[in-house]
Amino acid sequence: NNDALSPAIRRLLAEHNLDASAIKGTGVGGRLTREDVEKWLAKA
């Protein structure tokens, strides 16, 4: 759900042209964290 994304995470996803639904969030309530996105980028 994009409503649950912080502005910083939205920007990070946009910079790398990523789809938030492709990344499993580990934050509160399954929210994406910066670490989630960075780990996903490291694997890609």
Rank of each mutant, 00 (worst) to 15 (best):
L12Q: 04
W40I: 12
D36F: 01
R31I: 12
A8M: 12
A4K: 10
S21W: 09
A44F: 15
A14H: 08
H16Y: 10
A4Y: 15
D19N: 09
A42Q: 12
W40L: 11
K43L: 14
D3G: 10
A22L: 15
G25N: 02
D3L: 08
N1E: 14
R34T: 09
V28Q: 12
N2Q: 14
E38A: 09
H16I: 03
V37D: 00
A42G: 07
L13T: 00
E38I: 15
A14N: 07
A4F: 15
K43W: 15
S6Y: 05
V37H: 00
R31H: 07
L41D: 00
K39N: 14
L18T: 06
A4W: 15
R10S: 05
E15T: 11
K24M: 12
L13E: 00
A8H: 11
K43N: 12
S6T: 14
R34L: 15
G27S: 03
N2F: 06
E38L: 15
E35N: 07
S21V: 07
K43M: 14
R34P: 08
S6K: 05
D3F: 03
A14M: 10
K43D: 10
A44K: 09
E38V: 13
R11K: 13
V28G: 06
K24P: 14
P7N: 10
E15H: 14
E35T: 08
A20T: 06
N2S: 13
D3E: 12
W40Q: 06
A22E: 13
S6G: 08
D3Q: 12
N2D: 14
H16Q: 02
E35R: 12
G30A: 05
L13D: 00
H16L: 08
E15N: 10
G29L: 07
G25T: 03
R11V: 06
N17K: 10
K39L: 12
K39Q: 12
D36I: 01
G29T: 04
R31E: 08
E38H: 08
A42S: 11
G29H: 08
G27F: 04
P7K: 10
N2K: 11
L18S: 04
T33L: 06
G25F: 02
L5I: 14
L41A: 04
T33W: 01
R31M: 13
H16V: 02
G25K: 03
E15G: 08
A44I: 15
R34S: 07
T33M: 05
T26M: 05
S21H: 08
N2W: 03
R31A: 14
G25Y: 01
V28A: 12
L12S: 02
N17F: 08
A14S: 09
P7V: 11
L18E: 03
N1S: 14
A8Q: 10
L13G: 00
L13Q: 00
G27D: 02
S6I: 05
N2I: 14
G25Q: 02
I9P: 00
N2C: 06
L41H: 07
N2T: 13
I23M: 10
I23T: 01
A42C: 07
K43S: 12
S6V: 05
A14P: 00
W40K: 04
G25A: 07
K24F: 10
T33H: 01
K43G: 10
A44H: 15
N1A: 13
T26N: 05
H16D: 00
E38S: 06
R34Y: 15
K24L: 12
R34Q: 13
G27T: 02
A14V: 06
L41P: 00
L5W: 05
A8P: 05
L32T: 03
W40A: 15
S6D: 15
R10H: 06
K24Q: 13
K24I: 14
V37W: 04
N2P: 12
K39S: 12
E35F: 10
A20E: 08
G25M: 03
I23F: 05
G27E: 02
G29N: 13
A20S: 08
L32N: 00
G27L: 03
L18V: 13
L32H: 01
A4V: 13
A42Y: 12
T26I: 04
I23P: 01
L18G: 05
N17S: 08
G29P: 02
W40M: 10
A4Q: 14
A42V: 08
G29A: 09
P7Q: 12
I9V: 11
L41Y: 07
L41C: 04
T33A: 01
G25I: 03
V28D: 10
R34K: 14
L18F: 09
L32D: 00
A4S: 12
L12P: 00
S21A: 12
A22F: 12
H16W: 07
A44R: 09
V37T: 01
A4D: 14
E15P: 01
I23R: 02
A14F: 11
D19K: 08
V28K: 11
N17V: 04
N2A: 13
L13N: 00
R11S: 06
T26K: 03
A4L: 14
R10W: 05
H16N: 05
R10N: 05
L13M: 06
A44E: 11
L18H: 03
A44L: 15
G29F: 07
L5N: 05
G25E: 01
E35M: 09
T26W: 03
N17W: 06
G30L: 01
R10E: 06
N1R: 08
A22T: 11
R11F: 09
A22V: 13
D3I: 09
R34I: 15
K39M: 13
G29Q: 07
A8Y: 14
D36M: 02
L13S: 00
A44D: 08
W40T: 07
R11T: 07
T26V: 03
D19W: 06
E35L: 10
A14D: 08
L5E: 05
A44V: 14
H16R: 03
V37K: 00
R31W: 07
G30I: 02
V28F: 12
L32W: 09
A4R: 14
D19M: 08
V28M: 11
T26R: 03
G29I: 03
L13Y: 02
I9E: 02
D19I: 09
N2L: 14
A44Y: 15
L13W: 02
L32S: 00
A4T: 13
D3K: 10
A8K: 08
A22P: 04
S21M: 10
A20Q: 06
L12A: 05
N1L: 12
G30N: 06
L18P: 02
T26E: 03
G29K: 06
N17L: 07
A42E: 11
R31L: 11
V28Y: 09
G25D: 01
G29Y: 05
I9K: 00
K43R: 13
A8I: 09
D36V: 01
K24S: 09
L41V: 07
R10M: 08
K24A: 11
D19G: 05
S21P: 04
R11W: 13
S21R: 11
G30K: 03
R31G: 06
A22S: 12
K24Y: 07
A4G: 14
N17E: 06
D36H: 00
A22M: 15
R31P: 02
G30R: 04
N2M: 13
I23W: 04
G30V: 02
H16A: 04
G25V: 03
N1M: 11
K24T: 12
A44P: 06
T26Y: 02
A20M: 08
G30P: 01
L5D: 05
K39A: 14
D36P: 00
S21Q: 09
R34E: 11
A42W: 13
E38Q: 11
E15K: 15
L32F: 05
A42D: 09
E15D: 11
I9N: 01
N17T: 04
L18D: 01
L5S: 04
A22R: 10
T33Q: 03
I9D: 02
P7E: 15
P7I: 11
R10Q: 09
P7A: 13
P7H: 12
K43Q: 14
I9M: 09
L13A: 04
G30T: 03
A22H: 11
D19R: 07
R10V: 12
D3Y: 02
L41N: 01
L13F: 06
L18K: 03
A42T: 10
K39W: 13
I23L: 13
L18M: 09
G29V: 03
L32A: 03
N1G: 13
E38M: 15
S6Q: 06
I9T: 05
L13P: 00
P7S: 09
K39P: 03
E15M: 15
V37A: 05
L5T: 06
L12Y: 08
W40P: 01
N17D: 08
I23D: 00
R11P: 00
D3T: 10
R11I: 07
L12E: 03
L5R: 04
A42P: 04
W40C: 02
A20V: 12
A22W: 15
L32M: 06
A44M: 15
S21N: 12
E35D: 10
D36E: 03
D3M: 08
V28I: 13
R34D: 10
L32V: 13
G30E: 03
D3V: 09
R31S: 11
T33V: 04
A8E: 15
L12K: 03
E38G: 04
G25W: 03
L5H: 06
A20R: 06
